[in-house]
Design a protein around this nucleic acid. Structure first.
Lengths: 330, 330
DNA sequence: TTGAAAGCGCTAACAC
DNA sequence: GTGTTAGCGCTTTCAA
């Protein structure tokens, strides 16, 4: 593959001039610049990224570490990040941590090695990855979940408030035994939603009971089992606040298997809007999170920090909004 | 950030020894190796990726260029690719081409610049990106769609046959005016599905009519409009083969707006299985594609080519299978 | 405005 | 088994 000196030879100039011409530096004779451009074109020259990165001690790459690209919520975030990154001339390395501290740690290591310009991290709650990044002074923005014990930029959603609103809504619809199916303990979003749910019960003066709360991974399968257990126990809930749209699939399957109809038999509100929620009968009430915006904003913050435009740390909390549909009214 | 010579100094050895020790070369005195490891650990040393990449003239990075990560089919592919890549110690750069030749071209340029080890490409049908890659002898594997006019590795799905089967199934269920809603002209998967649909009509001896065929982007919105137009015209179809699950959302919305029920009023089969398809009433019949496997296999092929284990080009065509549910029987 | 030359951090000959 | 050294391809002083 052609190098900068091949181009220089062909254009009859030095490599310095080629570099300057190709990078659009002002101080280059137009005629020489044209010759350089032509030579580069003829040779199909592409600057060697690693060489440039080494020399400049910086790369135009961001890393996005999320739990799972197959989760539509994270996909939307990824899309937001990618759009902004691409716009700014940055590439995006995608990493699935599967919510395991080991994989997260491994990916942070890769990011550090490759000297990525910055990292967007939806942390598992594992402390050392954050300190690791800090030690190497790589800019980080926490996405969807805060970084434990460390002041860093973060773009979050007010899950607690959203869960409270959703719970109040269910109570207002006349459901009296409202349950909650949330994600694993220790995952901030899961915990916040549970706390918000309890806030809601309290505000609505509805009795809380630990038998109405279940946790599972943020996946359909676990949620299905948990929902089944919840609905077949003594004194089952008559409504359910569900942790995300993937879990909602499991819950809806469990309901169908028990011949229970959403809304009529069991009131339902799930976190995350998804295109298919309106197709159900009845359509699913949801807490819609601005996932794309989270990603786009986080990427913008990260870029600002990378370029040094901003040095103070900021936590932005976006709000989610309740979309009431048929599944939450008897 | 600590460099290899910092580690060398601290361990009291040369940089060569550090390099050897850290890369697990056999010929290093165990005691020295231990000292090196300790020094590296103490300094929080991370080898400089760009420097190593420059020196070795290779990177452990793959690029995945797909039309849209928000499409669950591509997401599943991405996940398959990432799992295999990660297993082999490779990172993955994610690129959304939005099915535009310009963005695709742009991303191929980036991949070339960064000297990625290989590219997984779901091409728009634009010829020059393929030749570009070939000119620079970067290994490529085409994913989901073949590379135009060029012998390269490819992992495809037999869309034509699958579409034929689906159409035959609809005909067998007694639908007599079967329509087809597929993707943009020129996108091979869209065209193949249309061809297969026509194969099916012919085999079933059902009359074909161009008024029963519509195209739109592989998105819900376009599909909704197209479906609406199709269903409100004179002599509307009584069944529809739909191009993918995203389009299916649009079609189902259009049906609901017209108070038409899938199955009873309009038979429906859509490409791509999705978790929510079983939640509908009636559940949606689909053509399930092995998306994760496509990604995983493509990544494996690419890695084999990168390492030189394989030099002959191969085209693997996986088959999709029809999953009959309620939406395709009156 | 242009060129010569140093050097980013690493690995791989090569010499010892 | 270990050290010395060249050089990957680029950008950026520094001189001219």
């Amino acid at each position: 593959m052609a190098t900068i000196s091949d181009v220089a030879t062909r254009a009859g100039v030095s490599t310095a001039t080629v570099s300057r011409a190709l990078n659009g530096k002002a101080t280059v004779d137009p005629e020489l610049a044209a010759r350089v451009l032509a030579a580069a074109e003829e040779l199909g020259y592409r600057p060697n990224g690693p060489a440039r990165n080494l020399r400049k001690q910086e790369t135009a790459v961001l890393a996005l570490i999320i739990s799972d690209v197959e989760n539509p919520f994270f996909t939307a975030i990824a899309r937001g990040v990618e759009d902004v990154a691409h716009e700014a001339g940055y590439s995006l390395v995608l990493c699935n941590s599967d919510d395991t501290p080991e994989k997260e740690r491994e990916y942070v290591d890769v990011a550090l090695q490759e000297r990525v310009a910055g990292v967007l991290l939806s942390p598992t709650g594992n402390e050392d990855t954050a300190t690791l990044l800090a030690r190497h002074s790589t800019p980080v923005v926490a996405v969807d979940r805060p970084l434990p014990e460390r002041a860093s930029d973060a773009v979050l959603v007010d899950n607690r408030l959203a869960a409270k609103h959703a719970t109040l809504h269910l109570a207002g619809q006349g459901y009296g035994r409202i349950g909650c199916l949330t994600g694993p303990s220790g995952v901030p979003t899961a915990d916040d939603r549970l706390t918000g749910y309890r806030d809601g019960l309290r505000a609505a003066k509805v009795a809380a009971s630990s038998s109405l709360v279940r946790r599972s991974r943020f996946k359909a399968e676990g949620a299905q089992q948990a929902a089944h257990a919840l609905l077949t126990q003594d004194d089952p809930p008559d409504a359910l606040l569900v942790g995300n749209s993937t879990m909602a699939v499991g819950v809806l399957e469990a309901l169908a298997a028990l011949h229970l109809k959403p809304g009529r038999d069991v009131g339902l509100v799930a976190f995350d809007d998804a295109p298919w929620t309106t197709l159900l009968d009845p359509p699913l009430s949801v807490v819609a999170q601005p996932a794309y915006d989270i990603g786009a904003l986080a990427a913008r913050l990260l870029l600002e920090r990378i370029t040094g435009e901003r040095t103070d740390t900021s936590t932005t909390t976006l709000s989610a909004h309740l979309v009431v549909r048929g599944s939450s009214s008897c």
